[in-house]
Computed example of a mutant assay.
Amino acid sequence: MNLPRRLGLTGSIGAGKSTVAELLRNRGFPVLDADAVAREVTEDPAVLRELAAAFPGVVHGGRLDRAALASRVFGDPAALAQLNALTHPRVRARMAELEKACQASWAVHDIPLLFEGGLESGMDALLVVDAPLETRLERVRSRSGLSEAEVLARDARQLPASEKRRRAAAHPRAAVLDNAGSLRELEQQLDQALRQLGVELAH
């Protein structure tokens, strides 16, 4: 079976990764969304039972209280590692299933923690979306209602944007999109990056 080549897509919170994912969908690329797959995985009754046993009080009426789970594990490396051990293998397996079903020559792997998970080596090309911290803070606060401190705390749980840029520079086939301007400017950067990386859908 000929699997599609992998275009890894990542970026810091508020940088505009989801916007780029939508632009790629509009250009015909299948997008495998790791966050969506994680939500799907944690709706599995077997996974919910394991989560309820590991983290009492986070499952109510057969549904996961994501806010309660987040408050339980973030800031506790051991609890976060336990959660990741429960969910990450299942997420990877589901992503692999979705990848096999793709008919395109390239599939986009939309993974917020791509570098944190050491997944860049498995990608044929990378797109990293970035924007100034002040811009990212304002975007997240306006859409989520989170305080600046809460956004900064979430941002701190990811690699710094500068480190993501450094790792992109170390990858043989990567581009960074600076999303500080208009949507039109972002689209132009994206199209240029796809040409630069040789990422195109076979016709």
Rank of each mutant, 00 (worst) to 15 (best):
L197H: 00
L64I: 01
A53T: 14
Q196R: 10
K17P: 10
Q189G: 03
L197A: 00
G16R: 02
R90L: 10
G75M: 11
N84E: 15
R92M: 00
F29L: 08
R166D: 08
R154A: 06
A101N: 07
A54W: 06
A202S: 12
S105I: 11
L7R: 15
H109I: 14
E163R: 11
A153N: 05
A96L: 10
T42N: 06
F115S: 06
T135M: 12
P172T: 08
L186T: 09
T87P: 00
A81D: 09
L137Y: 04
V59T: 07
V176N: 00
A174H: 02
E97A: 00
M95V: 03
S71I: 03
A156F: 08
G61V: 06
T87D: 07
L23C: 09
L194W: 01
A70N: 10
S162R: 09
N26S: 14
G198H: 01
L152A: 08
K100R: 14
R157T: 14
E187W: 12
C102G: 06
L3S: 14
L186R: 02
A107D: 04
H171C: 04
R5Y: 09
F55I: 03
A68S: 08
E138M: 09
E22I: 14
R5F: 10
L133I: 14
P89T: 12
